[in-house]
């Protein structure tokens, strides 16, 4: 009897924990949506900022985020895929490969502001790229590299052994097997990783703080060497700089909503693709 009561109380606490979690996270989505919708309009999405950031739109920030994100994928996808292919197909079982695995895991845990410092010292200063889309993209690409590697790794490992053996039996070499059989089969899983990486790169602020972002410009970036506005940094700048806090707050709500929608849609898409893929194999 006592055990029954303990069980009831215990389960109640678990339900309460989940309810509070959902309440907290739900209220964030609610407040940002309700306030953000007020400023969202076609003009907000497509116009440049006007009147010292109190009117107009945030198009340069959207474009900047787009460039930074695509730029970072451009670098991290090939590198991440190659690393994953190496780990699955080529790597011997030895201590050096173990160290490599550990360093990938640890790279994933490095604080984002530390990537910002690294980008500042290496890309901005040492290579002389200056504060630019190129420097920001490179910094972000190292940040998302572990995500791309682990998603690609999972996808490649899931390719059945029999497919590889069939290919070898037909006389194909290892490289031909990888290129024609393994990678195409794993492609949906790799794509999931890429999409999740895009979501992560789009939302990060600290790494681009010193490497790419600028607060106020009414021009679009013209080359990889120009600095740019970015949605996440724009939210921060609106809240901490400028002279019209109230109007700026509403614009920040709009930016937060766009960013939130962007990131949530991207990760929902990735998860949908993954679930679909999983069902195919199981």
């Amino acid at each position: 009897m006592k055990a029954e009561i303990t069980q009831k109380i215990g389960f109640f606490l678990l339900i309460a924990a989940l309810a509070i979690t959902i309440l907290f996270l739900g209220s964030i989505l609610y407040f940002i949506t309700v306030n953000g919708v007020k400023v969202l309009s076609w003009q907000f999405l497509t116009d440049i900022p006007r009147k010292a950031m109190t009117a107009g739109g945030v198009a340069p920030a959207i474009v900047g985020t787009l460039y930074l994100t695509l730029g970072s994928i451009l670098f991290s996808l090939p590198l991440g895929l190659i690393t994953a292919i190496y780990l699955v197909e080529y790597s011997p079982k030895n201590i050096i490969v173990n160290i490599l695995r550990m360093s990938i895991n640890n790279l994933a845990g490095v604080p984002s502001v530390v990537f910002g410092l690294f980008g500042l010292a290496v890309f901005v200063k040492f290579f002389g790229f200056g504060v630019s889309i190129l420097a920001g993209s490179l910094t972000l690409s190292i940040l998302i590299l572990p995500n791309i590697i682990s998603a690609s790794y999972e996808a490649l490992v899931a390719v059945p052994r029999s497919l590889r053996e069939a290919s070898y039996a037909l006389g194909a070499t290892q490289w031909q097997t990888i290129k024609n059989i393994v990678v195409p089969t794993a492609l949906p899983g790799i794509l999931t990783g890429v999409i999740l990486g895009i979501g992560r790169a789009a939302g990060e602020t600290a790494p681009i703080l010193f490497t790419a972002a600028t607060f106020y410009t009414n021009r679009y970036p013209v080359s990889p060497m120009s600095e740019c506005m970015a949605l996440p940094y724009h939210i921060y700048a609106l809240m901490t700089e400028g002279t019209h806090p109230d109007q700026q707050k509403m614009i920040a709500f709009g930016c937060a909503l766009i960013l939130l929608l962007l990131v949530l849609c991207i990760s929902a898409l990735a998860i949908y693709l993954r679930e679909k893929q999983r069902r195919k194999y199981v």
């Binding site: 964030i28 939302g203 602020t205 939210i235 960013l259 949530l264």
Partner: peptide
């Protein structure tokens, strides 16, 4: 996946 800037 919600960016930390949104929480901030």
């Amino acid at each position: 996946a919600v960016p930390s800037i949104v929480f901030g």
